[in-house]
């Protein structure tokens, strides 16, 4: 890793992000959603699943979406190959981009949580859980962005990511029975595990989220190996 190269990629991607209307509008989604939800809570505040729904929307629409769009655009315009052929390592490239995505996610998430109440998230265990969840969505975004050949195609992948991993608490509103297989599977998803961790303070749930993050990291690595050469 080389800090100068990471800094160069961060500077380039930040400038590019600020000039890309498609990316710039993504952080607005969770902020607007939290503004609407903040009117629903009343004096007791929003229930925990609703709070995490905002978190899921922020991570899927800002972290995963921005990362996959940035990577897919680099792929589509062939600029990623230029970066990879430079002395910058894949880690330099990914860290530089992740810092931009992380900054945007932090701004969008902080503003969103300020509207719906940030206090429930100011616990060390919850913060660690949020960091793991951020990494999960980040790896998912990098991996999908690497194998997606165009920005237009990313929307086809973003939808399942958003609905499966970002809107998981919404499964509860589908009217399915508690012991249905869909609900049981959905309960294993990272966002539901974080809700469980928030309510029960269980470290086991954190472990499940860590496994999801590890799986996403492996997925990214496989996509990178495929992208590295034309073989």
């Amino acid at each position: 890793m080389n800090t100068q190269r990471i800094g160069a990629i961060f500077e380039k991607d930040l400038k590019d992000f600020m000039k890309n209307m498609m990316l710039l509008t993504m952080p607005i989604i969770p902020i607007i959603l939290s503004l609407i939800y903040s009117r629903l809570g009343g004096d007791e505040g929003l229930p925990v699943p609703m709070l995490y729904l905002i978190v899921g929307v922020a991570f899927s629409s800002v972290t995963a979406s921005s990362m996959m769009t940035m990577m897919a655009e680099e792929n589509e315009k062939k600029t990623l190959r230029g970066l990879m052929m430079s002395p910058a390592s894949f880690m330099d490239i990914i860290i530089g981009k992740s810092l931009v995505v992380g900054l945007m996610t932090l701004i969008a998430l902080t503003l969103s949580l300020l509207f719906i109440g940030i206090e429930p998230f100011l616990k060390i265990q919850v913060i660690i859980g949020l960091v793991l969840l951020f990494l999960f969505f980040l790896f998912l975004g990098i991996g999908i962005g690497l194998f997606t050949k165009s920005v237009a195609a990313t929307s086809a992948y973003l939808m399942p990511v958003m609905f499966l991993f970002g809107f998981t608490p919404m499964m509860g509103f589908l009217g399915l029975e508690e012991d249905s297989i869909v609900i049981k599977i959905a309960d294993l998803f990272p966002l539901m595990q974080l809700i469980n961790m928030h309510e029960t303070e269980s470290w086991m749930s954190m472990g499940v989220v860590a496994i999801w993050t590890l799986a996403a990291a492996i997925f990214t690595y496989i996509c990178f190996k495929k992208e590295r050469t034309d073989d």
Binding site: D16, T79, G82
Partner: peptide, 12 residues
């Protein structure tokens, strides 16, 4: 395969 960042300036 060489290409440039279209939204950035030549200098950038």
């Amino acid at each position: 395969n060489s290409s440039l960042y279209e939204r950035l300036t030549v200098y950038d």
